[in-house]
Design a protein around this nucleic acid. Structure first.
Lengths: 138, 138
DNA sequence: CTTTGTGCAAATTCTTTGCACCAAA
DNA sequence: TTTGGTGCAAAGAATTTGCACAAAG
């Protein structure tokens, strides 16, 4: 069975040569929609790919972002995080546990780019922060 | 003449003890609305305050944020940036020069917090990115 | 005095770089 | 072969920490 078939295809659709490492990383991203950091990706894959290096994960994420296959999130002060869902949606970061969650179903007007500025705007990032459900009690 | 009078008062309003260093930093923030990094603040003040340390600037910014006197921006992957304007407005970062600009006059609906989520949301950050006016030609 | 603030140096963390080796076309 | 990909080790940059000294009340 080919669990990485989708990842493989997705990479080719984005003109990314599907090496073993890249396919494994993309596969991880598609199956774990947790907006992982480089370290989280590396730590998850490392046991089954002992020769994998963090440098390769960094390189891989740079290529994915450059080719538009994933979106780099700037929401966590400590680490870069990545989202394989490049559609218009917002994010929420829990100030207590640091986890990042998706927020869908927002009004489309929120994602419209302002026109009356002197800038050439090409993307928007909407980030909420607060306390997540699991951390509420604590 | 007391150029730092406003800063001094602003600090007291936020229950921050106005030391010489803190007043100088706040004064800088109020007069330079450029969303500076710690390094930029330090480099600007260092000539006239030779004993100032970066640690103190870091400590100072932490206190300012904690007391609600300034807002920490998460928009620049490389550095923490700070904005003394805590009112509802968005930011734009130029991918070419890295400068951060304010964007005012956006619809108030953009700053409304979503209610139908399992999270206790208490703030929103709207960040645009692209190319600024001065970098357009280059 | 006693508490709080400051600042140096060292440590930590995340990310990037240089370079040699490996793999695929 | 030749080009591009990988991975180790070292370097770099931003931030934090430990601790001693200074300042303010």
């Amino acid at each position: 069975m080919h669990t990485s078939l989708e990842s493989h295809q997705y990479l080719r659709q984005h003109s990314i040569k599907p090496s073993v490492q890249r396919t494994a990383v993309m596969d991880y991203l598609m199956k774990n929609r947790t907006h992982p950091t480089v370290d989280e990706i590396y730590s998850a894959l490392s046991p089954s790919m002992p020769t994998l290096s963090k440098t390769t994960v960094y390189n891989t994420m740079d290529i994915f972002v450059e080719k538009g296959a994933v979106r780099a999130l700037v929401i966590d002060e400590k680490n870069s995080r990545y989202d394989v869902d490049v559609s218009a949606h917002a994010h929420f970061i829990c100030k207590s546990c640091g986890k990042v969650f998706d927020i869908f179903n927002l009004k489309p007007v929120l994602f419209q780019l302002p026109k009356d500025t002197p800038f050439k705007i090409d993307s928007v990032e909407i980030s909420y922060s607060g306390i997540c459900d699991s951390c509420k009690g604590n």
